[in-house]
Design a protein around this nucleic acid. Sequence first.
DNA 1: TAAAAAATCATACAAATGCGGTATTGTCGG
DNA 2: CCGACAATACCGCATTTGTATGATTTTTTA
Lengths: 211, 211
Amino acid sequence: MNTPITVAIVEDKELIRQSLAILVDGADGFACQATFETAEAALDHLPGQCVDVVLMDIDLPGMNGIDCVRHLKQLCPTTQFMMCTMYDEDETVFEALKAGANAYILKRSPPHKLLEAITELHEGGSPMSSTIARKIASSFHISPTAPNELDVLTPREREILDRLSKGHSHKEVATELFVSPTTVRKHIFNIYEKLQVHSKVEAVNKYLGRK
Amino acid sequence: MNTPITVAIVEDKELIRQSLAILVDGADGFACQATFETAEAALDHLPGQCVDVVLMDIDLPGMNGIDCVRHLKQLCPTTQFMMCTMYDEDETVFEALKAGANAYILKRSPPHKLLEAITELHEGGSPMSSTIARKIASSFHISPTAPNELDVLTPREREILDRLSKGHSHKEVATELFVSPTTVRKHIFNIYEKLQVHSKVEAVNKYLGRK
DNA sequence: TAAAAAATCATACAAATGCGGTATTGTCGG
DNA sequence: CCGACAATACCGCATTTGTATGATTTTTTA
């Protein structure tokens, strides 16, 4: 281990922050370079000393950890972010990934797992607990249900729905398809009935497979 | 270990198939219940004896492992599928997940990791090597262009846009946020100006990063 | 070929929406 | 302290949209 992996910790709870710092600093090949109690503090000081890996708590007072990552990722593009949280809630996982985090682990993970994860993350991997990976994997095969729903639509209805999904209005679609606006509206109404929705946005969401 | 985890293996290469079978069968708490050389053979025989976990090679002669999973998942919804492959190619990972697989590991993984992965998969996790997880994580923040556009929005505007994206109307959003409908409309108007759009669907498309 | 489904068009009404202007309040940085 | 900005709110108007009812013509399919 010539050059240790430099780590920063953002965590508001004193006890956890200290524990993590000691764990990281005590291990071979790791160096805890900074700790912060808040997202704001991290945003202030981290850009100057971009570390290799940041352990980021999500539930912080003031700005939350996800928004913090979103900003830091811009300022330190090479830094890797690992979200550390107590719970594996659906929404936050995706939000964190979108924000630029590359790892997502639970605080209850055993210490050696944590260090292993830091190493993997630093080497270009994306360690995450398998329960969290499951959430992500599941988000991919939501499609087997969706296509069935669209099967009930006629080709013409799909054609119209497709244009609606591009943000076109009744009139525009009518012009494009050389039919009367009332016809288009009738089709849209039928689409709504079949998909059990009551607005364009809902219909388009179903069409594009995002619910 | 009262009831062992039942496993089936689909793999065309004799040597690998045998090795896996011996590994699984020899381990405590696992039972290799069947092995198949081809996807077709698996499709013929597996539905009758739905096992807990199927190790599926991707590169099979005839039908490939991904299509095989797609079909089997319909017939055995409770069975978990683990893709085993030599390489971690981009496309196949996503295809496999979409097809219904829940784990994706490399054949070069050490035996004990494989058994561990089978257990995790059976317990509802989604084990995957961290390099593969990285590919998936990356697919979430592929939107480096979109966030810039959304940066011009205020938090409140994003909040409102988020609710619009769920198909809520002016009034509904107003109720949810405890403000007047006219306020919401004003916000929406401002959003449209900033994003240079003229309708909900267009705004939502930009927000969700698909245009 | 007869029945079912799809595509077309019309009329009508209420609600939602898009667009414009104006104004008050609070916060924050310079 | 001031200016910029965000959030709040109102009014008004023209248009779009969601819903309903009804009808005609083509196409598909049983």
